[in-house]
Computed example of a mutant assay.
Amino acid sequence: MPPRRKRRRSYGSVRKLPSGRYQVRYPGPDGLLRPADRTFPTVTDADVWLSRKRIEIEEGRWVDPAHGEATVQDWGARWLASVSPQLKHTTQASYRSLIASRINPSLGGHELSSLRPIAVTEWVAQMRRAGLSPSRIRQAYRVLSQIMESAVDNGLIVTTPCRGVRLPRMPQSEPHILTPEEAARIVESAPAPHDLLIALLAFNGLRIGEAFALRRGDIDVSRRLLVVDENLAEANGALVFDTPKSHQKRTLALAASLAERLGTYLTGLPEDSEELLFTNRDGNPLRYNQWRKAHFNPAVSAAGLGDITPHDLRASHGTWVADRYGVMTAAHRLGHSNASVTTRHYARPVAGRDSEVAEAADAWMTGKDGASGT
């Protein structure tokens, strides 16, 4: 029997292997012949694959398979080095920790082109079985997603494997909204100067790191103004001064009584405008856990309250301001670039307001003045 003649093709080639399967070779945009990443059971399957590859190249969607041979670990390191200059120090430390402890041990050895959604799904399930919190799992997944999206953007892979993955839901925890009177009791129960620090959390809505980072030059007593342009945070045990969250520098008005008390306190500090307002006994920057245990928690207990966090004071401030002056004003006070963040995480309905709205609605419907009863 004469040997079977090869089918002539205008693009690429298909040949039958001794195993009976078919191998495809095709020219890339650079003219180099490359084999398909798999063999095919029939010549028809091989021809279909070859046709699709040709269309992919003609439409500019082709990716050199060699590019996808880089590992997740190698590309992750390159990606982190490229984005680090734009990240806050705490974010850099968080990303580095997640890559080293969560991504590389499980997925780092995979070639970019070989990582599939099922592997990512299994990785997420593995973290859940290990008892990681939903927040930590979502953070790790978000970093991996950014690494893989960068690989797509740079033409190393066609699509990201971080798709269709179900992540654990975040528990819905409501902040404890205090009344202004309750917050004032905590301030009165704290020793100086920590009473002023707590007052800035409750009555100016500062983040704890913003309050820790305040300097003498940030306070203008005569104009009753406060400038928030720095944040103090811990990154892998080290204290780092950086810009506020979302880089939102802002100037806030101070209550007259608070400005007066701050003015009195400033007279006892050095004249250096860079002098920190609040430090520990050794003159060093405050650390959150130490400060909360030594000064905040005792003040809460002395005020007859319990289960209150410093963050609750900020959330309470946002609620008071939003209730009386609107969400946009609250967003400015809290340093949010988007008011939706204020309503989603901070401002909460004030107790009793719904009943007041119902009474007002009755007046609107009847045309009677609810206040006068006429």
Score class of each variant (00 low, 15 high):
R5T: 09
R9L: 15
S13G: 10
Y26I: 08
Y26H: 11
P27T: 11
L32A: 15
L32N: 15
L33M: 15
A36W: 02
A36F: 03
R38D: 07
P41W: 01
P41M: 02
V43Y: 03
D45L: 06
A46H: 11
V48D: 14
S51M: 12
S51D: 15
K53P: 00
R54H: 12
E56R: 02
E58H: 05
R61S: 13
W62G: 14
W62A: 11
P65V: 07
H67C: 05
E69T: 09
D74V: 10
A81S: 13
V83A: 09
K88V: 07
H89Q: 13
S94Q: 12
R96V: 05
A100H: 08
G109C: 02
H110R: 10
E111V: 00
S113P: 01
S114L: 07
S114V: 10
L115S: 03
P117L: 01
A119N: 11
W123D: 04
M127K: 05
A130M: 02
S133H: 05
P134A: 04
R136I: 13
R142I: 04
Q146N: 12
Q146R: 11
V152Y: 08
T160Q: 06
C162F: 01
R163Y: 03
G164F: 03
L167R: 01
L167G: 06
P168D: 01
M170Q: 14
M170A: 07
P171K: 02
I177F: 10
I177N: 12
L178W: 07
A184I: 09
S189K: 04
A190H: 05
L197W: 06
L197N: 04
A199D: 15
A199L: 08
G205T: 10
G205N: 01
G209H: 04
E210L: 05
F212D: 04
R215P: 03
D220K: 00
V221M: 02
L225E: 13
L225Q: 14
A233F: 03
A233L: 03
N236E: 15
G237H: 05
V240M: 06
V240Q: 13
D242S: 14
A255D: 15
A256W: 06
A259P: 14
T264A: 13
L266D: 13
P270R: 00
D272H: 09
T279N: 09
D282T: 12
G283L: 02
N284P: 01
P285G: 08
L286Q: 08
N289H: 11
R292H: 10
A294Q: 10
H295L: 05
F296Y: 12
A303L: 07
L305Y: 05
I308M: 04
T309Q: 12
H311P: 06
L313T: 12
A315Q: 03
W320E: 10
V321R: 00
V321Q: 01
V321S: 03
M328T: 14
A330L: 12
L334G: 09
N338K: 04
V341S: 01
H345A: 11
R348K: 13
P349R: 01
P349M: 08
G352V: 04
V357A: 14
A358S: 07
E359S: 12
T366V: 04
G367W: 05
G367R: 01
G367H: 06
K368R: 12
D369P: 05
G370L: 03
G370Y: 02
A371L: 11
T374L: 12
